[in-house]
Design a binder for these strands. Structure first.
Length: 111
DNA sequence: GCGTTGACGAGGA
DNA sequence: GTCCTCGCCAACG
């Protein structure tokens, strides 16, 4: 894990997110060992569509469960569409029962 | 090497 | 609960 660059670590964690689950930028930042760099997680996501294999960036939201990154999808509605396909309810660009769908990446990293 | 950039988060009002 | 401000730090030009 530590041999990878910060971006690659972020991508690796995001790819571990199970279908139908979501997590936050902050949680990912903690998982890669830089909890203060939550902003960089989002910054890294900017490049997520270029990386191979592609990362499920639609399963990453901010701590409020708000789909702040949807503007970076094309079309923006795609993010909500993908999540709803996985059984997650989106309302007003926000995930309902967020804590219920929340997935803690740090627990998977430590295994 | 430096200033800017951000899909963020915590804390205070 | 919301809104505003500040801190954070790797990548980019």
């Amino acid at each position: 894990m530590k041999d990878l660059s910060f971006f690659e670590q972020v991508y690796a964690v995001v790819r571990l997110i199970p279908t139908g689950r979501v997590t936050t930028y902050g949680a990912i930042a903690v998982a890669v060992g830089a909890k203060k760099a939550a902003r960089m997680v989002g910054y890294a996501m900017n490049n997520s569509h270029v990386v191979e294999p592609q990362v499920p960036a639609h399963r990453v939201v901010n701590r409020k469960g708000l789909l702040t990154g949807r503007h970076h999808f094309s079309p923006p509605e795609l993010m909500e569409k993908l999540l709803s396909e996985e059984g997650i309810i989106i309302r007003n660009q926000q995930i309902q029962n967020f804590d219920k769908h929340f997935w803690e990446p740090i627990e998977e990293i430590r295994i």
